[in-house]
């Protein structure tokens, strides 16, 4: 069997070329979906019978929270691949995913606070989901801080990779212990709004926005990866051609 295609996947040059061709399409798809999702979410969906128009924060909040967890998994898996098979491109992916994921975590926390103020009457409650999201932000910050601290990029990649792998093992443990802690301390906390059956118009808007935000994050991550490729491979001849030296 010919394994050439597989090795090509890990080549920074191949990635740079292919991502350059894909990026415009990802952008177009993301923006179209986002426009449709925002229209559906802000104008075309029903108003929640309890929360009124405040419920429309959901169309940014839920996709951000979804992306924040998804990009942590992407980061950890990429770091593990890079660590185990010593693939440089995988490390570049992990390093590029971290700030995107951290930004989405922050956005989820921010929109959650903005949503919580009118609904719960407070910016912040020590609800299990909020707390896990906050800890997720700390884990992202730890990964980025550790990577920044090393001067040698390869050592930084491997060190941060170990941390990401330790982190991904801990994420479920942290999540469940926080959930358990919450039920332990407060009997009846302010629950998230009940959604026994989401109205179809809301569901469509939510799904559109989730896909739009994931594609948006992917596009940003690709930009970061392209930058990483250029700066790490700056002495290669193909990079000199690309940047016109």
């Amino acid at each position: 069997m010919n394994w050439q295609w597989f090795h090509r996947l890990s080549s920074p040059k191949w990635f740079y070329q292919i991502s350059g061709r894909w990026l415009p399409w990802i952008w177009i798809l993301s923006l179209v979906l986002m426009a449709a999702g925002l229209y559906q979410g802000l104008y075309n969906s029903v108003v929640d019978y309890q929360q009124g128009n405040t419920v429309r924060i959901m169309y940014l909040h839920v996709p951000a929270a979804f992306a924040s967890m998804m990009f942590y998994v992407i980061m950890a898996v990429a770091a593990a691949i890079g660590y185990i098979w010593r693939i440089k491109l995988a490390h570049m992916a992990a390093v590029s995913a971290a700030p995107v994921g951290a930004a989405m975590t922050f956005l989820a926390l921010l929109t959650g606070a903005l949503w919580g103020k009118p609904m719960w009457g407070t910016w912040w409650v020590w609800d299990a989901r909020l707390t896990s999201e906050l800890i997720l932000l700390f884990l992202y910050l730890g990964f980025m801080a550790l990577h920044q601290a090393f001067e040698d990029r390869e050592v930084a990649d491997r060190a941060a990779g170990v941390l990401a792998m330790v982190g991904i093992v801990n994420v479920p443990i942290i999540h469940y212990s926080v959930e358990w802690w919450n039920t332990l301390h407060q009997g009846a906390t302010i629950s998230k709004f009940e959604k026994p059956s989401l109205d179809p118009s809301m569901l469509i808007a939510l799904l559109l926005m989730i896909f739009a935000v994931i594609l948006f994050c992917t596009a940003i991550m690709m930009y970061r990866m392209r930058n990483e490729v250029l700066s790490r491979e700056h002495s290669k001849s193909w990079v000199k051609e690309v940047i016109g030296l």
Partner: peptide, 23 residues
Amino acid sequence: GLTVGLRQGGVLLSLLVLPLYIP
């Protein structure tokens, strides 16, 4: 083990370790 080679390891260590201590 991750921060031992760094000059300013102390503060970084707390950032890495404390979230994992939460459970």
